[in-house]
């Protein structure tokens, strides 16, 4: 047990914690924007998976990181567009739509990977690029903090900046005002000429971009290649984080950190002599537990108000 604690209180653990929060935080922020606009985007998982592969293929065949980024983002936006079109124009239920996107994604990624590499498991045979790590000048020299905050993957910093950016968008920009109104009372928004559908399209596309970055981080940062089903439920965990954070940027950040903590824990716990399956379960159990605890507290609060 003390080994575990020692591990958790080490700078290495905190560094890893920030590392593993990246692919949860990015799609969670995207999911939050969607939630605010009144759309529950269950397709985050699939969007991540597709952009993870697209990033790898793009960088491998486009001959560079930029090509990979373009391919990954382009794919994420395209899939989001499909989701938006079916949900908003053809009035398909968002849950089913998202599930369909996820099904498509897990089929399509393997099909494409197989067609190109002849393998179904990984893209190891391709020479793809990864986002570089960034050492922050000055900060990197500070003891402890430098080790924690500096030297992360570029995408990790992008994720942290995205928290601020999403806050700015939601509370300072006209678009944010529209997104919030469209989610809370679409009739009111449309009665003053806000195009509800267009606003939701934009929200879904913004979400797609953030989610796509999260997906690319998986295959071009977290790992250096694409592996089948590599997203492993992070899209869903992100959705839980968005809900638990009540779709506010700070709340989403904190709940993502919480879920990432358990993801990081599961890495550390591999040291123990527990059956590995129980450790593999941990992030998922933590998500169920976290979401439940949040809901209980919400229900209690409502009850207390009534009892006063």
């Amino acid at each position: 047990m003390s080994i575990i604690l020692q591990n958790i209180f080490s700078t290495e653990f905190v560094y890893m914690w920030i590392r593993v929060v990246t692919p949860i935080l990015l799609p969670a922020l995207g999911g939050a924007i969607c939630n605010r606009a009144g759309v529950v985007n269950l397709g985050l998982e699939g969007i991540m998976l597709l952009s993870a592969l697209a990033g790898v293929l793009g960088s491998a065949f486009g001959g560079g990181l930029l090509a990979g980024l373009a391919a990954g983002l382009g794919t994420a936006l395209l899939v989001s567009l499909v989701f938006a079109y079916f949900h908003l124009n053809l009035k398909a239920d968002a849950t089913i739509c998202g599930t369909a996107i996820n099904t498509l994604a897990s089929g399509f990624t393997v099909l494409l990977l197989f067609t190109i590499t002849g393998e179904k498991g990984t893209s190891a045979s391709l020479k793809s690029f990864s986002f570089s790590t960034v050492n922050i000048p000055l900060v990197e020299d500070i003891p402890v903090i430098g080790k924690i905050l500096s030297g992360h993957n570029l995408m990790t910093y992008v994720a942290l900046l995205a928290v601020v950016a999403v806050w700015f968008l939601l509370y300072k920009m006209p678009l944010g005002l529209r997104i919030r109104s469209v989610g809370e009372n679409p009739n009111a928004a449309s009665s003053v000429g806000v195009n509800v559908r267009r606003t939701r399209y934009i929200a879904i596309l913004l979400c797609g971009a953030l989610t796509g970055l999260g997906g690319m981080y998986m295959s071009m940062g977290y790992l250096g290649m694409f592996t089948r089903e590599m997203v492993a439920g992070r899209g869903f965990i992100a959705l839980a984080a968005a809900a638990m954070g009540q779709s506010t940027p700070i709340g989403v950040f904190l709940s993502s950190m919480l879920f990432a903590f358990f993801d990081g824990m599961s890495n550390t716990l591999q040291l123990l002599a527990l059956p590995s399956q129980f450790i593999d379960m941990l992030p998922y159990l933590a998500t169920i537990g976290g979401l439940t605890a949040y809901s209980i507290q919400r229900a209690r609060k409502a009850k207390r108000r009534l009892a006063e």
Binding site: L177, R178, E184, A188, A189, V194
Partner: peptide, 15 residues
């Protein structure tokens, strides 16, 4: 046709 959590000003300038 108002958005309850927004202020009067925000409701009026919306759109």
């Amino acid at each position: 046709m108002l958005v309850p959590s927004l202020t009067v000003i925000e409701n009026m300038i919306l759109g």
